[in-house]
Nucleic acid binder design. Sequence first.
DNA 1: AAGCCTATTGGACCGGTGGACAGGGTGGGC
DNA 2: GCCCACCCTGTCCACCGGTCCAATAGGCTT
Lengths: 205, 205
Amino acid sequence: MTKHLFISSKGQLQARWQSAFPDAVVRTELGGGRPDVLWWARVPLNSAELSSAIATLSGVPVVVLSPEPVQEDAMHAIALGARGYCHSHATPAMLQQVAVAVTHGGLWLGPELMSRVMGAASERLLGEHPAEADPGLDLLTPRERAVALEVARGATNKEAARRLDITERTVKAHLGAAFEKLGVRDRLQLVLALKYVPVDIDHAA
Amino acid sequence: MTKHLFISSKGQLQARWQSAFPDAVVRTELGGGRPDVLWWARVPLNSAELSSAIATLSGVPVVVLSPEPVQEDAMHAIALGARGYCHSHATPAMLQQVAVAVTHGGLWLGPELMSRVMGAASERLLGEHPAEADPGLDLLTPRERAVALEVARGATNKEAARRLDITERTVKAHLGAAFEKLGVRDRLQLVLALKYVPVDIDHAA
DNA sequence: AAGCCTATTGGACCGGTGGACAGGGTGGGC
DNA sequence: GCCCACCCTGTCCACCGGTCCAATAGGCTT
């Protein structure tokens, strides 16, 4: 018989899970025997905890359950080695499906996520990035690029303004345009989007 | 009963496959009814053919079989939407495993490929290389580190608070402590400090 | 000439951010 | 017991960051 172990912060979904797997064990902490499937339902998702759980139970498929599935969380989960990701309120039938898939060596993600992951993986491994080298820098005008690079080095708007000899207001304007073009919401995400940019030589030690 | 359709250039493995699935149908071309699983064993792998087959049988999981599995082929296959990839001489037991996984919504790739694909997908989607131990990070307490990492991913204080299940105020506290310890003035420079080590912070002077 | 893109700046608004006060709680070392 | 490090929370406030409303001016294509 397949042993299912659910790790949950609180036990409130125990009944639901046990209707999918009558012999399911629900606990708040890892421990005890070695299950055949580990269902990780602790919220919020803590990377460190999950990672150590996966490492501890090496070989046991881990499925992450979330009360409100987020793609980003799912990506983190599979990056850490999880074999599945689905809604913690999924129907018992769905949970059984997932269990079957992962215990037979599969990865279960749900249709949308699956296609996203597959697309990303193939892009990465086949080396055909859609916007290959620059995920954005050449979308920007020269001025926008200059401002973006200043900001990406950690400058405040005021500092960037001084270095480029323009008004802080203008910096904001260019920066706003850059946000728009790169589809990010703030300077920090701009930096993350531009993270490949090598640090200026004249500022490196 | 699950219907298995094998598409093969030549029929020589028919016996093996039928020992896994007694009612398996082996053909050289697509056609006839709609199977529950489509096993694609045509060699060499033709992207166009496979693609159109997957499109034609939309919704039917497709598993690509190869007499000599190559990672690149596997990547192409899943890029086109295949749900599995394995050796065409796999044991009947293995084939049954694969069938179970894919018919339950899973992706089946084999351990090595799976980890490769997962790694690639997460790198691509999260834009991160697997844990390159940041030197500054161990100056921080576990909680400060967790907050710092959330922020380093582009989260706002509010988002970090939600993800770590603490108040925004507490996020600020940990973050402030992290700024102090790392000698930076704001979240953006924190990210830079965690990503590239040798950046001089004071180009404002 | 008209239209568009780029660069530049202004003012105003408001939410996010970071620092400066405050505490409260736990657990471990001396 | 006391001290200390860590974790968590609160209020207040100045500043920064991002976006809205503009406007002016040069260069470029049509």
